[in-house]
């Protein structure tokens, strides 16, 4: 399979990764791109950069080489806050309150479009 290197006989496929960084790498930034006027910025990916200005420059090289947008935001990844997926129902209303939905109300045909 392309780009997947098989494990040769006599070799171990187990590589320990520790999530420890030894090199003191650059901080991570999240990149949001507005594709065109009239639409919101949408998350497109992340990158590493030492500061905001360099993050913007890197975003051009990494994510917008072909006119992908008219505006870019970069936000330090450490500033993104989120809830755990298992807690979703605490934060996002499940669609069980059907009376909130327009389609649950019956309007007679003779009234016309409403």
């Amino acid at each position: 399979m392309t780009y997947e290197v098989p494990i040769a006989p006599g070799e171990s496929g187990e590589i320990e990764t520790t999530a420890e960084t030894t090199g003191g790498g650059w901080p991570m930034w999240e990149v949001f791109v507005r594709a065109r006027r009239g639409v919101s910025h949408v998350h497109i990916g992340s990158l590493h950069a030492p500061d905001a200005e360099t993050a913007l420059q890197n975003s051009r090289d990494v994510y917008t080489r072909r006119g992908e947008g008219v505006s870019v935001w970069v936000v330090p990844s450490s500033e993104i806050h989120a809830f755990e997926p298992d807690d979703a129902t605490d934060y996002v209303e499940a669609n069980e309150k059907v009376y909130r939905l327009a389609t649950t109300y019956e309007i007679p045909d003779e009234v016309g479009q409403m």
Binding site: V5, E20, G23
Partner: peptide, 18 residues
């Protein structure tokens, strides 16, 4: 995982490429 760690694994020959 951290990007720097992946780089190191490549440089040490522990990670391969096509």
């Amino acid at each position: 995982v951290k990007r720097d760690e992946l780089q190191e694994l490549l440089h040490q020959g522990k990670h391969k490429y096509s």
